[in-house]
Amino acid sequence: MAGKKTLTFALMDAPYESARTTTAFRLMDIAARRGYDIRVFAYEGAVCVPFAQQTAHPNALHGRDAEEENHPLPKDWVAALMTEAESNGGSVDWVNCGLCVDERGVADAIEGVRRGTPGDLWSMAGESDNTLIMGTR
């Protein structure tokens, strides 16, 4: 696929709740590897995805300590996505819906995440080549 593109993704799912989160990151990772500019509007539970206080845990059922378990933390996926995009000449602009952040008490997001409004979704979509909405159920 020739040419640099800008794609917007709207996410709604809280982490650890839906396969949509994994699929969304798989899609955005492909875009990041292509050096695309990626715009993310995190709405509702998705504002918890880059929450900085996520903590990995061991899993006794798996017989592994925390280090061996390497439990996925979605905040690390966000950071990895940002690094991947930048290393390929692209970017990630991750906007958390501010009201959604406040009602959930998750203002402590990782570096690079900013606070915004639904107007940001509209403006990001308008500046993008395409937009994918991934609603929750």
Binding site: Y43, T117, P118, G119, L121, W122, S123
Partner: peptide
């Protein structure tokens, strides 16, 4: 959000 975006000019 439809109301909010409409208000933002959508």
């Amino acid at each position: 959000i439809s109301h909010a975006m409409k208000g933002a000019g959508a």
